[in-house]
């Protein structure tokens, strides 16, 4: 065997698989470091979404008194949004904060952004422990059947997020500003994404065309559909999600593959 291995995709995939213990260890490290020394430990992963849900419910129900906005509608989007926003913001540091490793040991560099994505994905899955009871609470004790679509939306959303993370981690290695740019952009994207408003609201203003420019909007329209409106995702949104998730993943992988050999020199 030559080392490092050749560059055919199957060879690379096999090589990546050999390092799954590393991926596991890195995620375990992040989780341990995060909670070690805190009294509530991993319960923070539940308290975080719980506080989000409670705060949004109370504010929307009793303070803002906006008839149009219901708590569950916002809760449907806010939990996946936190996953996306945290992953993307942190992924900019995946490579540069591990400069020491990259410069001194050879291992598949993809492991680093991937561990960031999976770390936040685990937090996201933990949030379901409070999310599902919240849905039942607002739906009078039952779960909408349209939740069966949820795993599909999640899978596509995951792939979109992973693609973005690969791209951003590589790009930040060459241009450090991308890290700060991402932080600012995320804040603006939040308002440009249907989280605090819904498809009917957008449609009533005749603005649906505007949302084709935001790749995230089909995902969040769909989350609201299956959780709040109890409807399947709209077909055009399904197609858009599929296209965007594939496009983003391919773009992220391509940029990463093209630039990764230079990481050790650049850092």
């Amino acid at each position: 065997m030559t080392y490092p291995p050749g560059s055919s995709l199957t060879q690379e995939w096999r090589y990546l698989l050999r390092y799954r213990e590393l991926l596991r260890s890195l995620i375990a490290k992040d989780l341990k470091v995060k909670y070690r020394g805190s009294y509530l430990g991993f319960f923070w992963s539940l308290l975080n979404p719980l506080s989000l849900i409670v705060v949004y419910s109370l504010v929307l129900k009793f303070i803002m008194d906006v008839r149009q906005i219901e708590p569950l509608m916002v809760i449907a989007g806010i939990i996946p949004w936190v996953f996306f926003a945290n992953t993307v913001t942190n992924s900019t540091e995946s490579i540069i904060s591990n400069a020491n490793l990259v410069k001194k040991i050879f291992f598949p560099r993809e492991i680093l952004p991937l561990s960031t994505v999976l770390f936040h994905f685990i937090q996201f899955l933990l949030a379901f422990v409070v999310f599902l009871p919240a849905v039942m609470f607002f739906k009078g004790g039952r779960l909408p059947w349209t939740l069966l679509y949820y795993p599909l939306i999640l899978l596509l959303h995951w792939s979109f997020t992973a693609g973005a993370a690969l791209f951003l981690s590589a790009a930040t290695t060459y241009y450090k500003d991308i890290r700060y740019l991402t932080e600012v952009a995320i804040m603006m994207v939040f308002w440009g994404t249907p989280i605090l408003y819904t498809y009917p609201m957008v449609a009533s203003k005749g603005l649906t065309w505007l949302f084709w420019f935001n790749p995230l909007s089909p995902f969040f329209f769909s989350y609201q559909n299956v959780v709040h409106f109890e409807q399947p995702p709209r077909p055009e949104h399904l197609i858009a999600m599929l296209l965007w998730s594939i496009l983003m993943l391919v773009l992220g992988l391509a940029v990463f593959r093209k630039t990764r050999d230079g990481f050790a020199e650049e850092l």
Binding site: Y19, E21, R24, K29, L101, F107
Partner: peptide, 19 residues
């Protein structure tokens, strides 16, 4: 922040060893 044991696993995994 990690113990010697946890670092042992992490470090060895960096070199491509499995569990």
């Amino acid at each position: 922040e990690l113990t010697g044991e946890e670092n042992l696993y992490l470090n060895a995994a960096l070199y491509g060893l499995d569990r």
